[in-house]
Design a protein around this nucleic acid. Structure first.
Lengths: 218, 218
DNA sequence: GAATGTGAATCTGTTCACAGCG
DNA sequence: CGCTGTGAACAGATTCACATTC
């Protein structure tokens, strides 16, 4: 039922669909019932045909001459992305960032529930954070099955990211979201996503340097 | 001196350059003096010609028949990206995520020093975190100049992101890295980068759903 | 000989323009 | 009439293939 057309869906499309959901929620809160691709495009900072093409990968959700029904479109996208259910997540690496994510209620609001926290530091094991007791990382392989987790978040220091990944993989995890600034090796069937916010700082710094060398700031 | 060839440099190239720096540091620590585009490519999970093309935007750093000198290449890329100096950063929104970033020493290690923390919650103002006293967001316009900050990090809730951005812009900030899941409007000369880690969870979930519907996990 | 640097070919993603439909 | 859905045109990024240099 997913991906009816069986075409390859661009990575960029997925990212944008998530953005559309975000903006549709804003529109919904503002009481808008219907939205045109043009209006939604303005809100998202993209081209209107881009939106129509992105949606076309999954079906026909609009009404010609009218636009899209906000609520229906939002739900349709979420369903298409597999976000119409709860995903159980385990987190490895209870440092500053790990703690922040454990306490971050936006994750839960979006359907991602952290059901286990793991670390290899004996001083952290046993500590309770956001209602979860930190467990030893070596228990991951059995705990993943027990907790029925499908996604693992890595928030360890970079040098320990691969070890964390190995534990997750051994436990049969289906996807990894890696916040550590390091590449990790995984079998092809395991989905790996990188969240590298230092990249974004790099990118900002570079673009500012470019602007400066163009005399942008006089 | 930056961007000698004055061509447009693809966004994706910048992201990869940051990745190359990461891997070059790993190679450096392993004691490697020289690396070929092929070896570096394997480490980064990209195509070797991709690396050569990316580097070609900034100059000729390699030696034919030999490869690239690890240390020299790393430094050359950092210089090209404007990362051969320290960037002063202010942070707005001292919630869980903001605190984590304030305590995150990787930022400093990469040359991004947080010189001011701001929030609009009176209960947080005055609190000290990682050696910084939290100040009222409304002081941003003057403080940015005083602290000589060029980049602003937004870690507020989404509904307050635009207000935070407005303060930053009024203070003459040159770039914004927005961690809040919301789009923000800014004048063209202000660089805006989005760090949306929920997107990456969405993306992982979607790809797992796809794999599942293909019968990947039997 | 070996690995870079680069034009040309390919592939992928985006935008246009308009036919089709409510 | 207005806005979607979509093939065709376009733009951009990636890969190939090889001449070039150490």
């Amino acid at each position: 039922m997913l991906n009816l057309k069986n075409e390859k869906i661009p990575r960029a499309t997925i990212t944008r669909l998530a953005l559309y959901v975000q903006q549709l929620e804003v529109l919904e809160q503002e009481g808008e019932k219907v939205v045109s691709s043009e209006k939604l495009a303005r809100a998202c900072g993209v081209n209107p045909s881009q939106i129509r093409k992105d949606l076309a990968y999954f079906g026909e959700f609009g009404v010609r001459g009218v636009g899209y029904y906000v609520y229906e479109l939002k739900e349709a996208i979420k369903k298409s992305l597999g976000l119409d259910r709860v995903w159980n997540v385990v987190l490895v690496g209870v440092g500053n960032l790990g703690r922040a994510l454990l306490r971050h209620h936006v994750l839960r609001k979006r359907g991602f529930v952290i059901v286990g926290a793991f670390d290899c530091d004996p001083f952290k094991i046993g500590e309770e954070i956001a209602g979860l007791e930190v467990m030893c990382s070596s228990n991951l392989p059995t705990k993943i099955k027990e907790l029925n987790a499908e996604i693992g978040i890595i928030t360890t220091p970079p040098e320990r990211a691969q070890r964390a990944a190995n534990y997750l993989i051994r436990g049969g995890i289906k996807g990894i979201v890696n916040f550590a600034p390091a590449r990790i090796a995984a079998p092809e069937k395991v989905v790996v996503e990188y969240v590298d916010f230092i990249n974004h700082l790099f990118s900002a710094a570079f673009q500012i340097s470019l602007n400066q060398s163009k005399g942008f700031y006089s």
